[in-house]
């Protein structure tokens, strides 16, 4: 029975939140599965880091899964995204295989970037992910460029540009939004506002109360959603995608959310309180909230939810194993891919 059909028995369809009207049961459960996959992937990566299997640093998006997933729900494989340093969720939500992500983190040849990029440059071009970025705001103009291609070549693709609240104070943000607007490009700017750029709160960094308020300066809709409610995010994304595909130009969506972990592996969390973190974790967790709705609307049973978690865990374990046994790159390949052809 489809989600639509089953939910209908519970309530008038029109009263249900957006996704329960829009998507089939299978799609709804797949979204949950991916949200779990994102979280378990990051927990797994964190464990591997602690055990010294992964070097460098990483930025975890635990607590922000609904934003990545909700935005990607209306997208098709050919649509493209640009991602950020906190980009594991985007990568998985857009359809990447966690095996190859783990392999990348382990620096192996089977990783998405052949071991050259690591967490901060994770990408899967085959599912439309043009890459995470080590430069805050670096992806914004690139997304506009990708949207220019889509428009010129009439590919029908839309481009989603993920960025953090911190990035909205880079010049690149303002320049990118302006160009997207004057050229009416099919791009959706998605600000994942988790309240802080590293240690600096948006109150201290940003002159407007909401990043979405800045949309007005570039004549595009600015939409604010609870980024921890999957349906709200997906609905805003859906509208923005339709607008972009119609040729009506860009939208700025601001997902209000929160990161549970420190900024990176070297954060003393001095700039926020434990109470604040606890409150978000206990009362506003995106996965818990989504699961509660699935149960409430009779879309899944708790046994079914448990089964999803179990299968996710298996996928994670298999991914880590794959990464471990994969080969290291050869040292003489150091200069591979600096150029397309030998310079």
């Amino acid at each position: 029975m489809s989600g639509r059909a089953r939910a209908m028995q519970v309530e008038e369809t029109s009263n249900l939140p957006f996704i329960y009207r829009q998507y089939e049961r299978e799609q709804l459960l797949d979204a949950l599965r991916k949200m779990h996959l994102i979280r378990r992937f990051e927990e797994g990566a964190e464990e591997c880091y602690m055990r010294g299997l992964i070097h460098g640093t990483m930025h975890l998006s635990i607590g922000q899964e609904a934003s990545a997933m909700g935005i990607c729900m209306p997208l098709v494989n050919e649509d493209q995204i640009t991602s950020t340093h906190r980009g594991h969720g985007h990568c998985i939500a857009k359809g990447a295989d966690v095996k190859r992500m783990f392999a990348e983190f382990f620096g192996k040849t089977t990783g998405y970037c052949a071991g050259r990029g690591g967490s901060m440059h994770i990408a899967d071009v085959s599912t439309g992910n043009l890459g995470a970025n080590g430069i805050v705001g670096g992806g914004l103009p690139i997304a506009v460029g990708a949207a220019l291609t889509a428009k010129r070549l009439r590919t029908g693709k839309v481009v989603v540009c993920f960025f953090g609240d911190g990035a909205n104070n880079e010049g690149a943000f303002h320049e990118a939004l302006n160009m997207a607007a004057i050229w009416k490009l099919p791009v959706i700017f998605v600000c994942e506002n988790n309240g802080y750029g590293m240690s600096t709160s948006t109150e201290r960094s940003t002159a407007v109360a909401n990043v979405a308020d800045r949309a007005a300066a570039y004549s595009m809709p600015g939409v604010i959603v609870d980024g921890n409610v999957l349906s709200e995010v997906a609905e805003a994304s859906h509208e923005a995608v339709e607008r972009a595909r119609r040729g009506d130009g860009p939208t700025l969506i601001e997902c209000k959310t929160y990161r549970y972990r420190g900024h990176s592996k070297s954060d003393r969390n001095r700039y926020r309180t434990k109470d604040e973190i606890d409150d978000w974790m206990t009362n506003r967790d995106p996965i818990k909230r989504y699961e509660a709705q699935l149960l409430e609307f009779g879309i899944a049973t708790s046994d079914e939810l448990e089964a999803i978690r179990g299968s996710v865990q298996q996928e994670i374990d298999a991914g880590i194993e794959f990464a471990k046994v994969s080969p290291m790159p050869a040292i003489d390949g150091l200069a591979d891919n600096v150029y397309t052809f030998e310079a």
Partner: peptide
């Protein structure tokens, strides 16, 4: 080259 991620490289 750019600096690669893999520690040996």
């Amino acid at each position: 080259t750019p600096i690669p991620y893999n520690p040996e490289l």
